[in-house]
């Protein structure tokens, strides 16, 4: 039972929860309220929250995943370790902080395309890919990736021939997936750093492939 003791000076049309009615929007108010209550209980420290946000906004991103892929492309032993136990292989990069779940890396081949989704709640491998793009969180992607992966790939510009198998990996709270895309032709002899620069987020979710920019290069 909340006490509504304050007047609603700008109230009109009985629109109590209308966002225009409050200086702070509904969700912003609720977040502030929750944060202040949790801070009073000693359960969160606003400074720690800022650090978490900064980490995920600026320091973690698909670049972590790109370095992992580039190493798998250049170091066959690492590739084997990654495919056998991605959680441990990713931990070899000391700077990647693991989250609560185990990681699995799945490899694209000329015969197999992999696609990652979280049909339930948009779980995403943050430590290696940063925060999910909006489309990954959309109803459309979550629903359609499972029932019509080829259609989804097509929407992303990927016309996958019928003779290529498409595997869909549905993430859970305990298990998250990343795709190791195929290394493009024309990158023989490239350094790990140079390869990492061409690995895209979409290719590691499985909706894209890695290409060498035409006209650029050597």
């Amino acid at each position: 039972m909340s006490e509504h003791t304050h007047p609603h000076p700008h109230d009109h049309d009985g629109d109590h929860d209308n966002a225009h009615d409050r200086p702070l929007s509904g969700p912003a108010l609720r977040v502030k309220a929750l944060e202040s209550l949790l801070a009073e209980k000693g359960l969160i420290d606003p400074k720690t929250l800022d650090e978490i946000v900064d980490t995920y906004e600026h320091r973690v991103g698909p670049r972590n995943g790109a370095r992992i892929v580039a190493r798998a492309w250049t170091d066959p032993a690492y590739r084997q370790r990654l495919l056998a136990n991605a959680t441990e292989a990713i931990a070899e990069f000391g700077f990647i902080e693991p989250h609560a779940e185990d990681m699995v890396a799945v490899e694209n081949t000329p015969q197999v395309r992999n696609l990652v989704v979280c049909s339930l709640c948009s779980c995403y491998p943050w430590p290696v890919l940063g925060l999910p793009p909006a489309w990954f969180k959309s109803d459309a992607y979550r629903a359609r990736a499972v029932i019509d992966p080829r259609g989804v790939l097509k929407a992303f510009g990927q016309d996958v021939p019928e003779d290529i198998e498409v595997r869909v990996w549905d993430s859970t709270a305990e298990m998250r997936y990343m795709v190791v895309p195929e290394r493009p032709a024309g990158t023989e002899g490239w350094s790990e750093e140079r390869l990492a620069a061409i690995v895209t987020r979409d290719s590691m979710v499985g909706v894209g492939t890695v290409a060498v920019a035409t006209g650029g290069g050597a």
Partner: peptide
């Protein structure tokens, strides 16, 4: 929006 980041971090 900032609140999205705060909710995420909490």
């Amino acid at each position: 929006a900032p609140w999205e980041a705060q909710a995420f971090a909490m």
